[in-house]
Simulated scan of single mutants.
Amino acid sequence: MEEDELDYLLVPLGLLLLLLYHVWLLFTIIKHPSKTVVGLNAQSRHQWVFCMMSDPLKNGVLAVQTIRNNIMASTLLATISITLSSLIGVFVSSDADNSTSEIVFGNKTPLLSAIKYFSILLCFLVAFLCNVQCIRYYAHVSFLITLPASVDNTETVEYVARNLNRGSYCWSLGLRAFYLSFPLLLWIFGPIPMFLCCSMMSFLLYFLDTTSSFTRRLHRRSFNEDTLKACDVESISQVSQRVCIEEYNLHSPLLHAASNSAC
Rank of each mutant, 00 (worst) to 15 (best):
I192R: 12
G167M: 02
L62Q: 04
M194Y: 01
I120E: 05
N98R: 14
N165L: 03
I115E: 12
S237K: 15
L15I: 08
Q65G: 04
Y248M: 09
L121A: 12
V37T: 05
L77D: 00
R242D: 03
S119H: 05
T28R: 12
D226A: 14
L125I: 15
F182R: 11
L184R: 09
G174S: 04
F124P: 00
A258L: 08
I88A: 10
E5Q: 14
L6C: 12
E158Y: 04
L112R: 12
A177T: 09
V11N: 11
T83I: 14
T79M: 13
M53P: 00
S85F: 15
S199F: 09
S54Q: 03
S222C: 08
D7H: 09
E2S: 15
S237M: 13
L185G: 13
D209S: 05
N69D: 02
L25G: 08
K58Q: 05
L147S: 06
S261L: 13
K35H: 08
T215M: 11
V64Y: 04
S199T: 12
S93E: 09
D7Q: 08
N153W: 02
A177D: 02
Y138M: 03
P110S: 02
S213H: 12
L254W: 06
H46F: 06
S222W: 12
D226H: 13
C197R: 00
L175Y: 08
L17R: 05
A161N: 03
H140A: 09
T109W: 02
C231L: 15
Y169L: 15
C130H: 11
F50W: 05
Y159E: 05
S199V: 14
F50L: 01
I236M: 12
S259Q: 13
L129V: 10
T75Y: 04
P193W: 03
E247K: 03
M72S: 01
I29Q: 13
E155H: 10
V233Y: 11
C130N: 14
L185P: 01
F182V: 15
S44E: 13
I80S: 09
S222Y: 11
L129I: 09
G89W: 03
L84Y: 14
K31C: 10
S142N: 08
R220D: 11
R136F: 15
I80M: 12
S213V: 09
W48R: 06
P191L: 04
